Structure formats: C-alpha cells, structure tokens
Amino acid sequence: MKHNPLVTNGLSIAFGLLFLASLIGQAFSGLAYFNEQQVSANLEEISFLQYVTSSTFAVDVTENWQSEYLQFLLFIVLTVWLVQRGSPESKEIERRGAESDEDQLIGRHAKPESPAWARAGGLKTALYSNSLGLVMGTVFVLSWLAQSVTGFSAYAADQLTNLQDPGTWGEYLGSAEFWNRTLQNWQSEFLAVLSMVILSVYLRQRGSPESKPVGAPHGETSVEG
C-alpha cells in the first residue's frame, strides 16, 4: 500500500518546521533584546541582517546545538552498554553490548534489502556500524568549536566596548564566561534524558513509541507502545 510522502515523513517535516519557526522567532526576539541593550547604552540600533550575521546571534544558536548533539551522542553510545530496567529507552538487559553479527544483520546475515555497507564487511561495515555516533560526534565538535569562536568574538566585542583587554581565544576557553554558557546547557540536556529514562518506567503515553503499552508492567524493559 502506497502512502502519501507527507504521512510517511510527517515526523521529520513537523520538527523541521518547528525548528525553522523557533529559529526565526529567536532571531526576531534576540534582535529586539539586543537593540534594547543598545538603546540603554546610548548606542546605535542594528538591522535584522546585521544581527543574524553577528557573533552574538551565532553563539546563542551554536551553544544550544552543541549541547543537543552531545546529549544524543552520549545517549546513542552509552545505551550500547548501559541499561535501565523497565524503560523503553533501554534495550533488554541481556542484550548489553555491541551484539552479534547475526543480531545486527551484518555480513552474511544481511537481508537483500539491507544497506550495501552492512554486507560489504571490513572497514566499510565497521564505519557504517558506528556512523550514527560518528556523525553526531562530528557535529557536536564542530558546533562546540563554532560556539567557542563566536562566543569569544562576542565576548571580545563587549570587553573592547568597556575598554578592557579581551585576551586570547585560548584564554577564553578556560574562562568562567565560556564554561558558564556551556555547562548551563549541558546540565539541562542531561536532566531531560534522565527524566525521560526514569519517568518512562512508570508513566505511559498511549500510542507513542517512546512509551511502553499502557498495560505493560513497570519492570518490562525495551518494549514500545
């Protein structure tokens, strides 16, 4: 049975639109807040284009991106080995680890419709077997570096406005300013994952794959509703 692409891709489309809407909203609200500060300091207001191409906007965006990708990177990698009894976010306790080639449909165990690199063997299969974590890790590192560079640029501009020495990028990486911005995002991401893992043991959302079936026992692990 053929389905409408809007139906089969509804989740990615919905979150893509939500992402764009929130990013645009952040840009306009950030510009308004920035210009309020400019007026308070008797400085000239800037345009929308100037704001969205500024280090101030870039650091606010990238510091959230890096924390989100760090969250998913750690969750993807840690759930290979760590489990949580009763949580649908965990795999079965007996399946801890990388699992066998047969379980993972690798090499001679691959199905006809399996990705080509799952059947290839060697380096290709090894890379493909860890491709999700590698890509998430790469995006995290790049966005973290982008945050550090744009954050330093914004910090340096503030320091120079106040006739103070901005220091170097390396000094900024060890500063309280940088780690305060970074850790306040990390702790919120870790709390969100912790809450999801634990609450999904005891609470339900009917029809959601992130929840167990409503009638599933609390101790049942790796079951989706």
Rank of each mutant, 00 (worst) to 15 (best):
T150P: 01
G151W: 06
G151E: 03
G151R: 03
G151P: 01
F152R: 00
F152Q: 00
S153D: 08
A154E: 04
A154I: 11
A154M: 05
A154H: 03
Y155C: 10
Y155W: 10
Y155A: 08
Y155D: 05
Y155F: 15
A156C: 08
A157Q: 09
A157T: 13
A157E: 07
A157W: 07
A157S: 07
A157M: 08
D158Y: 09
D158G: 07
Q159F: 11
Q159W: 02
L160G: 06
L160N: 09
L160H: 11
L160W: 06
T161A: 15
T161L: 15
T161V: 15
N162P: 06
Q164F: 07
Q164K: 13
Q164S: 11
Q164G: 08
D165H: 06
D165P: 10
D165C: 11
D165N: 15
D165M: 04
D165S: 10
P166H: 01
P166G: 04
G167N: 04
G167E: 05
T168M: 01
T168C: 00
T168P: 05
T168I: 05
T168H: 07
W169S: 02
W169E: 04
W169T: 05
G170Q: 07
G170K: 06
G170E: 10
E171W: 06
E171Q: 09
Y172A: 02
Y172V: 05
Y172F: 12
Y172W: 08
L173I: 14
L173Y: 07
L173V: 12
L173M: 11
G174N: 07
G174A: 07
G174F: 06
S175E: 04
S175K: 05
S175F: 05
S175V: 01
S175P: 03
A176S: 13
E177T: 11
E177Y: 13
F178P: 03
W179V: 12
N180I: 14
N180L: 13
N180V: 15
R181S: 10
T182I: 15
T182C: 12
T182L: 13
L183Y: 14
L183D: 09
Q184L: 12
Q184I: 12
N185I: 12
N185K: 12
Q187S: 11
Q187F: 08
S188Y: 14
S188Q: 11
S188F: 10
S188A: 12
E189T: 04
L191H: 01
L191I: 10
L191S: 03
A192K: 05
V193M: 08
V193C: 05
L194E: 03
L194D: 00
S195G: 13
S195I: 15
S195P: 05
S195K: 01
M196P: 06
M196K: 04
V197D: 01
V197C: 02
V197W: 04
V197S: 00
I198E: 00
I198Y: 07
I198H: 02
S200T: 11
S200K: 10
S200F: 02
